[in-house]
Design a protein around this nucleic acid. Structure first.
Length: 578
RNA sequence: CGGGAUGUAGCGCAGCUUGGUAGCGCACCUCGCUUGGGACGAGGGGGUCGCACGUUCGAAUCGUGUCAUCCCGACCA
């Protein structure tokens, strides 16, 4: 490809509405342009990257025994009624009406379509198992699209669906997919962690997410992972074992104490000269419009998602100050926030495991400017009946599965795998006949990879101040040749010759034949992120060209006749190394 | 849906308070000059100032409405 022909434009300035690095760089380097909120055009460079990722996915999916097909994006309402998701999916499901007034959905995922298809086509256990996948645009009408291609409304996704005759079969399919996923991301140059997750709205029993750990602040999720074993989990469901802490308040006497204006945990620690871990903190939440008290050790934070799951609520939020006072008044107290406690408040109370070992602790008693000190469970206070893990796991906690320690990082979810079981096949009456002539629903699994999101994750993970550092396997081109001065016939001649010979070697090469000053070409090459740059300039006086690696900055000066073999070698190395 | 902000050339922004010929930088076109890290000079093209209504002799500027985009949250994962 000649740079003078390539459809692209780099921007010197960062568009003001791009917040995260991948979004900024994709815009600046000419990979994407926004059409409307959450919807982007993939420019030629971007499309090359997406095709590379897609092809890696294809190779690994095919190798794992899956078959590619392509399903429509427009899906009739009836199928979604069958699964019950026309109602359940909510506003994220983009609904469109056709000229006859019939309703359709733009596919956010394809369980309904594939289940209906397989129901019609597969009748016997002899035809199973089968795993079908597609790489296709999905549409989800996100409330708030953001981060460019990381969380768009329209995005490229690979989705696969497995159909088995038994749970054991599903386990095998699931295992195969998890192995394929690990290989796929590795080949894209991305280290991923397989993270346990709730199956959530899609349903089913077991699911895992594949996360790219990014360190930068631009990841969407906090991920806690063990430094020793493979345990990793989203922070909103990570389990941990707390490290030892001072949990004995060492008050010699159990009594009410005056605590004027002492409201926060920090105030209390200062006032009494104790550790925050000697305090029982009481938080008021409103869950589905009903107040709930959450008790947790003073040095710990409640994870609202965990609390929500424990009490089986649909919606949860922290109560406002007015609501807290109102609550205390309802039970005959009149306490301000900061002095709340469980005693005498007859609502659902959930205690975090962290409060069990508290001794001689400090706790609120619903009297403004007073606390109770030297409290003990079973004496002055009763341990809540409901004790659960509702706490946010922290870096430095111990792993719940081994002796290791948890660390925290940001993560971007690039893939997920679900065991669906018979959730869809039962509702949609998708049955096969087993060995005994009995009708049974398919046992299903589904497996997604965000293709466009994977590209964004790769940029989030690998970039520097100058631009993108693509892994060789997914870079739009392998190499760029920069003739420093295109009007210098000698330089240009060498550059053209190298270009021809690299193309002959099947190296995907761009020649920057623009009549620009060298600074511009170097800046653009770095920004776009060509993994290998070959410069034909002043070193030609010694018969040499320069070869520079984008990822490491490593530079080689080689004789021009050796340039091609050196480039081929470097590219091979990088492709195998990943 | 709640809170905040912004819509002026492809991009980044000024102008608006105090109404009177629509500006700057980058990008683009022409010529010259320059060629190892986003040069320089001269000339040029491109804007119904998001849209609608209103106030006014006159609106980018004031008022009302509306649409869009972005950020924080809720949601999703």
């Amino acid at each position: 490809m000649r740079m003078t022909n390539l459809f692209f434009a780099t921007l010197r300035e960062t568009p003001s509405d791009a917040e995260v690095v991948s979004h900024q760089l994709m815009l600046r380097a000419g990979y994407i342009r926004k059409l409307t909120s959450g919807v982007y055009t993939y420019m030629p460079l971007m499309w090359k990257v997406l095709k590379k990722i897609s092809n890696i996915i294809r190779e690994e999916m095919d190798a794992a025994g899956a078959q590619e097909l392509l399903m429509p994006i427009l899906q009739p309402e009836e199928l979604w009624e069958e699964s019950g998701r026309w109602q359940a999916y909510g506003k994220e499901l983009m609904r469109v009406q056709d000229r006859h007034g019939r309703m359709n959905a733009l596919g956010p995922t394809h369980e309904e379509i594939i289940t209906a298809l397989v129901r019609d086509e597969i009748k016997s256990y002899r035809q199973l198992p089968v795993n079908l996948y597609q790489i296709q645009d999905k549409f989800r009408d996100e409330i708030r699209p953001r981060f460019g291609v990381l969380r768009g409304r329209e995005f490229l996704m690979k989705d696969a669906y497995s159909f088995d005759t038994s749970e054991e079969g599903l386990e095998t399919s699931y295992q195969k997919m998890s192995e394929a996923y690990t290989r796929i991301f590795k080949r894209c140059g991305l280290e991923t962690r397989m993270v346990r997750s709730d199956s959530g709205a899609i349903g089913g029993s077991v699911s895992h997410e594949f996360m790219v750990l990014t360190k930068t602040a631009s990841g969407e999720n906090d991920v806690l992972y063990c430094d020793t074993c493979t345990y990793a989990a989203n922070s909103n469901r990570a389990e941990s074992v707390m490290p030892p802490a001072q949990t004995d308040g060492k008050f010699s006497e159990a009594k009410e104490a005056e605590t004027p204006g002492v409201k926060s945990i920090e105030d209390l620690t200062k006032f009494f000269g104790i550790e925050p871990s000697c305090i029982c903190k009481t938080l008021v939440y409103i869950a589905d419009n009903k107040p709930v008290l959450a008790l947790i050790r003073g040095d710990r934070t409640v994870e609202e998602i965990k609390l929500k799951n424990v009490i089986n609520a649909n919606e949860i939020r922290i109560a406002g100050n007015a609501e807290i006072e109102e609550l205390t008044q309802k039970f005959g107290f009149n306490a301000q926030p900061g002095f709340i406690g469980p005693k005498g408040i007859d609502v659902q109370i959930v205690g975090d495991e962290s409060i069990k070992e508290l001794k001689n602790f400090v706790i609120g008693i619903n009297v403004t400017n007073k606390h109770f000190v030297g409290a003990n469970w079973g004496a002055e206070f009763n341990l809540p009946k409901k004790i659960a893990d509702i706490r946010l796991a922290l870096a430095g906690d111990f792993c719940s599965e081994c002796d290791g320690k948890l660390e925290i990082t940001k993560g971007i979810e690039v893939g997920n795998i679900f065991k669906l079981g018979t959730k869809y096949s039962e509702k949609m009456k998708a049955n096969f006949t087993d060995e005994n002539g009995k009708e049974k629903p398919f046992i299903m699994g589904c497996y997604g990879i965000g293709v466009s999101r994977t590209a964004a994750a790769a940029i989030e993970r690998y970039h520097d101040k100058d631009g993108i550092q693509w892994n060789m396997a997914i870079a739009p081109y392998h190499a760029v040749i920069v003739p420093v001065n295109v009007k210098d016939e000698f330089q240009m001649g060498i550059a053209e010759e190298l270009y021809k010979r690299l193309i002959e070697k099947n190296i995907e090469t761009v020649i920057d034949d623009r009549d620009e000053r060298p600074g511009v070409k170097f800046k653009d090459a770095d920004l776009i992120g060509f993994p290998v740059r070959i410069t034909a300039g002043k070193t030609l006086s010694e018969g040499m060209v320069e070869i520079k690696l984008r990822s490491t900055g490593e530079m080689f000066k080689v004789l021009k006749d050796e340039a091609v073999s050196k480039v081929v070698e470097l590219i091979k190395q990088e492709l195998c190394g990943s």
